[in-house]
Simulated scan of single mutants.
Amino acid sequence: MGALNRTPAAAVLGATGCVGRQVCSALSLRGYDVLGVARRHAPHADAHKFAAVDVAATEPERFAEVLQAANVRVVVNATGGWHTSEADNEYSHVRLVDRLLQTLALLPGVRLVQVGTIHEYGPVEEGRPIDEAVVPAPVTPYARTKLAGTRAILDATAAGSVDAVVLRAVNVFGPYTTRASFLGSVVDKLREAREGSPVVLSVADARRDFVDARDLAEAVVAAAEAPATGRVVNIGSGVATSIGALVSALVSVAGLPPEAVELERAEVRSKGGGWTQADIRLAARLLGWRPRTCLEDSMRAMWNTAEGAC
């Protein structure tokens, strides 16, 4: 009886990552007790309860005990990475989801929010906004395995064994952007330029949609509570911005003179091609969500957190 009166909790898988840490904060502000879950502890995870668990390697019964003990009513899967090998992608995006679904089948009434990727759709022709009706046709191991995870979740939802929503997010930037991303790597190079070393950046002739990690976190909170079971919802800014403009904005935020950085043309290399622009109308209708952070604020947060100012 006492457990029924406890504050509902939310478990965030991938809590130490760029997206996961923002989701933890957003859920906490919403009133949830937050349980961060990741394979390894990180200092910033101390803001919430934390469990060091490799979900893909943990027996479902054992992980279900961890979630049940914390009174978890919402699980957010913000794990995953841009792995190069098929095996690593399979482990992070398919095996982990399979284990998670087995776990949640033991815990009726828990809502799952899966953070997927816009790249699950695969490349689309330039100029076409990507809505949820686009038939997925991914071409990379990362995107194919993320799609496999999404399909497993949707199948489980249709079968009634889990209550889940999938958010297909565009590229993420803002505070604590991972160095593994293109913009994260640009930040590292611009920090070198601040020390007086001229920097040459390879910039593709591409236009992509980016969403601030804090806005994505707010979408996760909305999805945790909206009547959206079994739906896929695209999350982005709804704007395709040229990579050159993004880099120029970052150079400006860094306070560098234009001559400190030389831009050279490069081939498009992306998980989903040279063009992405999410159609976010369904997110507005179904979740009541719209992005709120402007590009300059995202760039400033990305730079400041890399510099240790935030």
Score class of each variant (00 low, 15 high):
Met302Thr: 09
Glu120Pro: 07
Ala266His: 00
Leu201Lys: 05
Arg62Trp: 08
Ala105Leu: 00
Cys310Ile: 04
Leu183Cys: 14
Ile243Ser: 09
Phe63Thr: 12
Ala9Pro: 12
Pro141Phe: 01
Asp33Glu: 00
Ala11Asn: 04
Pro227Trp: 04
Ala260Ser: 15
Leu107Ser: 11
Thr84Tyr: 12
Ala222Arg: 13
Cys310Ser: 12
Ala133Trp: 02
Val97Arg: 07
Ala42Phe: 05
Phe63Asn: 08
Ala9His: 04
Glu90Tyr: 14
Ile130Met: 13
Ala78Phe: 02
Val251Glu: 07
Val135Tyr: 01
Val170Cys: 14
Arg6Glu: 14
Arg39Thr: 13
Arg128Leu: 14
Gly116Asp: 11
Gly149Ser: 12
Ala64Pro: 08
Pro129Lys: 03
Cys24Ser: 13
Leu29Gln: 13
Leu154Val: 11
Ala56Arg: 06
Asn304Phe: 00
Arg194Asp: 10
Leu13Glu: 13
Ser270Lys: 07
Thr117Gln: 05
Leu147Ser: 01
Pro43Leu: 09
Trp289Arg: 08
Ala254Ile: 06
Pro129Asp: 06
Arg95Cys: 09
Gly80Pro: 10
Val251Thr: 14
Lys189Tyr: 06
Pro129Ser: 08
Gly308Asp: 03
Arg128Ser: 10
Leu190Cys: 06
Arg151Asn: 15
Ala148Asp: 10
Arg6Val: 12
Ala180Thr: 15
Val23Ser: 06
Tyr142Gly: 09
Ala254Lys: 00
Ala206Arg: 00
Gly308Val: 02
Asp188Glu: 15
Leu167Ala: 03
Val268Trp: 01
Leu286Met: 14
Glu132Trp: 05
Gly17Ile: 02
Ala26Trp: 02
Gly174Pro: 05
Gly184Val: 15
Gly80Thr: 04
Glu120Met: 12
Ala137Gln: 09
His41Cys: 07
Leu29Gly: 12
Arg144Lys: 13
Thr229Leu: 09
Ala156Asp: 13
Val139Ala: 08
Gln114Asn: 15
Arg73Cys: 10
Val200Thr: 15
Ser242Met: 01
Tyr176Glu: 14
Thr145Asp: 11
Gly288Gln: 03
Gln102Ile: 09
Ser92Asn: 10
Ala306Thr: 10
Arg281Pro: 00
Ala38Pro: 09
Arg269Gln: 12
Ser92Pro: 05
Lys49Leu: 02
Thr293Ser: 09
Glu192Cys: 05
Gly272Asn: 01
Val76Leu: 00
Thr103His: 09
Ala105Asp: 11
Leu282His: 02
Arg179Glu: 15
Val134Thr: 08
His93Thr: 07
Gly255Asp: 02
